[in-house]
Every structure is written in structure tokens, then in C-alpha cells.
Design a protein around this nucleic acid. Structure first.
Lengths: 264, 264
DNA sequence: TTTTTATTCTTTCCAAAGCAAACATAGAAA
DNA sequence: TTTCTATGTTTGCTTTGGAAAGAATAAAAA
């Protein structure tokens, strides 16, 4: 393999993943670690990446932009991705289901699409979601109690978790803030992580939802390995690498266009 | 995980939250506290943060500007009576108090007038009140869990009451829907009545609030005799007959202009 | 206030992982 | 052939991160 080809592959990989280990590249490309380091050195001179002990991180200006529309005051029309994902959620929900939504934008969107369904029971820690959903007469809404977090408009804490232990749901839709191949799922607060653990043990099926924007992002607090999920819903903008990663962990992946089934 | 990635996450977190504890970071990132301290040390040299005992605080120049709160909404046009009563409520509240507001318009108004107070803990079953109040950094907001009632945007039911039993408050402000001399206080739902009973037994002082509009009205469900109240707040538009009635029951009456004291 | 107690911080030492530099090897080009 | 370039190997050196113990600090008690 030519050096140039290697460099190309490394770049591509970094654009997808933001970071690499020397050892991974060495193994993947079948060359020694020294060679990889020399390649990285070149790329560092070029300003493409920053080397770290053990690997390298891509420089921000080369990072893949998460969304084409850069953050201009979201005009009410909710991100298309969120809408797509929400619709898939709704397809998973049947009449008479008892479900839980964790706090988050996607779940709020999903909760607004429940019109056709009958006799649902919805448990949530999201205040906004609860106050909007309760106008739907076919849905019995249960809100957890606890400490109110101003940023997320949701409740967390000891009380929320102890409340939760009184319920058992068919499905829980868990919205996370980050996913990466090393750590798995991550969220923005310890309280949320803790709540999620409790939820999972009180539900039949754990469905993790997130937009592709947060792939390879690491939020503050680790929730756990990807195998915690029974199913994952995201939009179709997901790399083959991640598809394999999810597949290997025997988690069912649902995207807006295709549907990949795990082994189980 | 690379050190660089850790640093990135710490920075991101600080920008969001302004401060962190070493222990939190250590747990969240799965490394020892020593490591975290070393990371913080670097960031301190860099001028990004200032270390404190137990953690670190972001330096002002990196702080995220608090978004200018689009709290425009309701242009203050609240019923004048409600405003008067709310202000009296606020006068009863001291720094460091632990109080409860039941759901209702007057209490919502009062909760918006807490600006000057410090270190309050507020318990409520009112979803709107909770979601608005939690933007006040001097108030710790606790929301009860339970069944969400769409009409009142509040939670009730078995869970709410059992949640409530975990708390004991200095004062509770109970907003009722009717008062008359035969039955005493009445409210619009059995659930609310039931919740109120539970609240009263978990508080030092029960303050009943209502506008004069509902005097002599009878709502759907009886709460109990007027003597349940330690204090009553209403607007000045109240007949001498009722003043005597309240007086005879040894309840303190507060109105916008005068203040009548009972015997107790 | 002073004293006590519990946390948290710093320092020192250590092991493991990763790195750079020098040297070695092999194939391609002159 | 010699020379050059790309890559691999070896050998110490550096960075990283953890453990432990004593110092410093904050909080609680007296």
C-alpha cells in the first residue's frame, strides 16, 4: 500500500470519527506503529490534526459539520431529522401501550404525533412533554416527581428514581446526548444517567434515540455500552462503520429509510 | 480516552455549567481524581478556569452568555386581585424558607415575585409554576410526581400524595375554588381535596388563598371547615359577615389593605 | 471564637503505555 | 553496483495515570 493511500484513509477515518488510536490504525492498515506515527506527523504539520499520546484528534476546521443549516434560529419547523426519528418512534407504539419518554426534543416531537393511538399510558420526566401531552384524551400522562432542572425542564434526582420504581413499562424511549464507540452512550448530567439506568431495569424494551448529529460526540456523563439498548432509532445519516458497530452489539437499528435487524 | 478529549469535555461542561466538582468529573470520565486535578491544573495555567477547593470555576471571559430569556409572554395583565394577593403571599415568605404552592393562578403569580428572596425551596404540584420558577437560581424547585391533569396542568393522585409524605414544609399556600359558611373550603376535584389534606398535615402553617370572586361559591368537592387554615389571604373586597366568620374561627385574615388578627 | 473532624489537595513514587532516535533492511532508481 | 526512499526493529526516554501519605482547607462542633 502506498503512503499516499494510507494518508487518505486516515483522513477519511478522522473525518468520520474525529479521533483515532495509533494502534488501531497500525492494525487496520497492516503497517507498524512507527509508520503510522510518521504519517500522523505529516498530517499534523499540514494542520489537519493534533497528535495526542496514543493517537490523534482531528482539528476543528476539518470536522464534519453536523447539520447543513448552521444553527440559524431554528424556525419552528423542527429539524427534519427529529421529525423523522419521532415518526419511527410512533410506529413502534401500539394501542394500550404503557410507555415512557425521557426528557428531550425528539421525544417531545414524538409525543405530539400520538393522535391516532388509543388508550396509552405515558410516563415521563419531561415537564414540557407532560403538560402538552395531557390535552390528548386518549393518553393518561404520569409525570415523575423530583428536582426540577431549569435547563432541560425535566425532573431528576432521588425522588424521581424512587417514583420510577413503582412503574413497569413496555417500552422506554431514551434520548441520549452522545454516542461513541469507546464509551457507548453519554448524556449531559449525572442525574440523567442515573435515571436512565433505573428506567432500563423497569422496562421491557429500551429504545435509544438520537440524531446523527451526536454520533461521535461525547457528552459529559457515561450511561453505558451500546448493548444496553434493545433498539436504536436515528436518522439515515449514519456511517457504515457505525451500522456495523451497532449490528455487532446485537442491537436493532431503525433509520428513516432502511431497517437493519440484529441477531437476537 | 485521550487526555485531549477529556480536556475538551471538561471545557464543554464548564461552558455549560460554569463550575464542576473534581469528584463528579472523576466519576463521569472514569479516571482518578488525581488525573482530573492535573487536567484542571493545565486548564488553569491556560487561563481557562480557576481551581477551587473541590473543583473549579470557569473564568468569566469564557462564560456562556445567559440567553436573554424570552420571558416576554403574559404582559403582566393579570387580574389585579390576583396580583394583590400574590404580593401578600410574598411578604410572608422569608429567606431560606421551605414552602409549598398548590396549583392555581394566584400561586403562579406569587412565584414570579420571588426575585429578592434567597435560598428558597419550593415544592409544588403545579407544572407551569415549576417550569417557570426553576429559572430562578435562588430557588430549588421540587415537583411532585403523579397523574397529570390537563385542565389545571398539575399533578394529583396516589403518587403525588405519597411523594408529599417525604416532605415537611414551613408554609403551604393552598389555593381553593370556593368558600362558604356551611361547608367551608371547596375545590374542583376530589384529587385536589385529597392532596390538600395530605399537605396540611405535612406543614407548619397552612395559608389558604382565594380571590373574593369565589366567596359564597361552592365548588365540587369539600375540603373541610375554615378552621383548617392558619391564615387566609384574599383581596379587600370581603364582607364584614365573612370577616367575622373567619375571626370566629380563630384564623388570621390578611387582605390588601387591612390585617385582622385572630385570637391565637 | 477555638477545636475537631472530614474533605480535598499536593507530593512522591511507580508501572504501563507510548514515543523518538538510531540503526537495519529491502526494494527501486540511477 | 551505489544510492535513495519507505518501512521495520530496537533501545532508552517521556508521558500518562494511579496509589499512598502527609499537608492544607473547609465545615462542624464545642
Amino acid at each position: 500500500m502506498f503512503a499516499l493511500e494510507r494518508i487518505k484513509i486516515i483522513k477519511k477515518f478522522l473525518i468520520e470519527n474525529n479521533q483515532v488510536e495509533v494502534s488501531t490504525l497500525s492494525e487496520a492498515l497492516g503497517v507498524s506503529e512507527v509508520t503510522i506515527r510518521r504519517d500522523l506527523e505529516k498530517l499534523e504539520e499540514e494542520g489537519f490534526l493534533t497528535r495526542t499520546h496514543g493517537g490523534a484528534v482531528i482539528n476543528p476546521q476539518y470536522e464534519k459539520k453536523p447539520s447543513p443549516m448552521p444553527q440559524i434560529a431554528r424556525p419552528q419547523g423542527i429539524d427534519a431529522k427529529i421529525g423523522e426519528i419521532a415518526q419511527i418512534e410512533v410506529q413502534m407504539i401500539n394501542d394500550n401501550d404503557i410507555i415512557m419518554f425521557t426528557n428531550g426534543e425528539i421525544n417531545r416531537a414524538a409525543s405530539k404525533l400520538l393522535k391516532g393511538k388509543r388508550n396509552l399510558t405515558v410516563l415521563t420526566n419531561d415537564i414540557i412533554l407532560a403538560s402538552e401531552l395531557c390535552s390528548n384524551p386518549e393518553v393518561k400522562v404520569l409525570l415523575l416527581g423530583g428536582d426540577v432542572d431549569g435547563a432541560s425542564k425535566a425532573v431528576f434526582g432521588r425522588l424521581a428514581e424512587s417514583n420510577l420504581s413503582n412503574f413497569f413499562v413496555n417500552k422506554v424511549f431514551i434520548e441520549v446526548d452522545g454516542i461513541n464507540r469507546n464509551i457507548g452512550f453519554t448524556v449531559n448530567s449525572t442525574e440523567k444517567a442515573s435515571l436512565i439506568h433505573q428506567i432500563i431495569s423497569n422496562s421491557n424494551t429500551a429504545v435509544f434515540v438520537f440524531t446523527s448529529d451526536i454520533i461521535n460526540k461525547t457528552a459529559f456523563y457515561a450511561v453505558g455500552a451500546i448493548s444496553l439498548a434493545d433498539k436504536i432509532i436515528t436518522n439515515n445519516d449514519i456511517s457504515d462503520e457505525y451500522k456495523h458497530y451497532i449490528f455487532e452489539n446485537e442491537v436493532q437499528l431503525f433509520t428513516s429509510i432502511d431497517m437493519y435487524e440484529g441477531f437476537a
